[in-house]
Computed example of a mutant assay.
Amino acid sequence: MNLKALVAVTGKPGLFKLIGQNKGGFVLESLDDQKIKSVVNPATTKLATLEDITVFGSEDELKLTDILERMKTHGEVPHAKSDGKTLRQFFREVAPAHDEERVYASDIKKIINWYHIIKELPLFNEKAQPVDDDAAADGI
């Protein structure tokens, strides 16, 4: 799963694809309706790539990409508007080590909504590019 260019924006629903940068900030394209483009200023708006997002775990934090991967292989994923019990039970199956006191129903709904947005994208089925430590050290 290669989700590097996908970001969540604080205060905006849905997900966005980072398509560029200009002097005003980052240029984003909405994944809900791929015709909507906007520019956000990183000084005033918080962006988080899906690869960097974690979920509270009972011991360690859980990577969102791992949870999405388990959702992909799970089979049927409920709709984000399903009742809270259904969503919580589903999340127990795909993220059994999550901290149920700190992961709220709204968090689960958001993750399930994101899954439904990205499941049809080609990026979702691509393998993430491995990071070459030597190349990273050389600045390549």
Rank of each mutant, 00 (worst) to 15 (best):
E29R: 14
V27E: 12
E51S: 07
V39S: 04
V55C: 06
A43L: 10
K23L: 14
V39T: 13
K63Q: 10
E51R: 06
G25T: 06
T49S: 13
I53E: 05
I19W: 05
K17N: 04
E59D: 14
T45R: 08
F26D: 02
K63V: 05
T54H: 07
K35S: 14
G20V: 10
Q34V: 06
L62Q: 03
E29A: 12
D52A: 15
S58L: 06
V40F: 11
S58K: 09
D52H: 11
G24L: 15
L18E: 07
F16I: 11
E59L: 14
E29S: 12
N41P: 00
D33I: 14
L28Y: 04
V39R: 03
S30R: 07
V55A: 08
I53H: 02
L47S: 03
N22S: 06
K17F: 01
G25M: 06
K17E: 13
F26I: 03
K37W: 05
L62F: 01
E61T: 15
L50I: 04
D32G: 09
V27N: 08
S30P: 00
G57P: 00
G14Y: 08
L62I: 12
G57W: 01
K35H: 10
K46E: 09
D33A: 14
K23Y: 11
K46D: 04
G25H: 02
S58P: 00
K37C: 09
G24Q: 15
G20R: 08
L18I: 07
V40W: 04
K46R: 13
L47C: 01
E61F: 13
S58D: 05
E59N: 13
F26S: 07
T45M: 06
V55D: 03
I36G: 06
P42T: 12
L62W: 01
G57F: 01
E61S: 15
E61R: 15
L62R: 05
L15D: 00
F26N: 07
L50N: 01
K23P: 03
T44R: 10
N22G: 02
G20E: 06
F26C: 02
T44C: 09
T54C: 08
S30N: 09
T44H: 08
I19E: 13
G20Y: 02
G14S: 11
A43I: 05
N41T: 07
N22Y: 00
V39W: 01
E29Q: 15
T54K: 11
G57E: 01
T49I: 03
F56M: 11
L15Q: 00
T54M: 07
E61Y: 11
D60Y: 10
L47F: 01
T44V: 14
G57C: 04
A48V: 08
K46C: 06
V40A: 09
S30K: 05
P42A: 14
K37M: 11
V39G: 03
L62C: 03
D60H: 12
K23Q: 14
D32R: 11
A48H: 08
Q21K: 15
T54I: 06
T45P: 00
N22L: 02
D52F: 07
V27Y: 01
D60V: 12
A43R: 07
T49N: 06
G14H: 09
F26Y: 14
S58F: 00
V40Q: 11
E51T: 10
F26T: 02
I36N: 12
T54D: 04
A48G: 03
L15I: 04
K37Q: 13
E61K: 15
A48S: 13
V55G: 05
F16G: 09
K35R: 14
L18R: 13
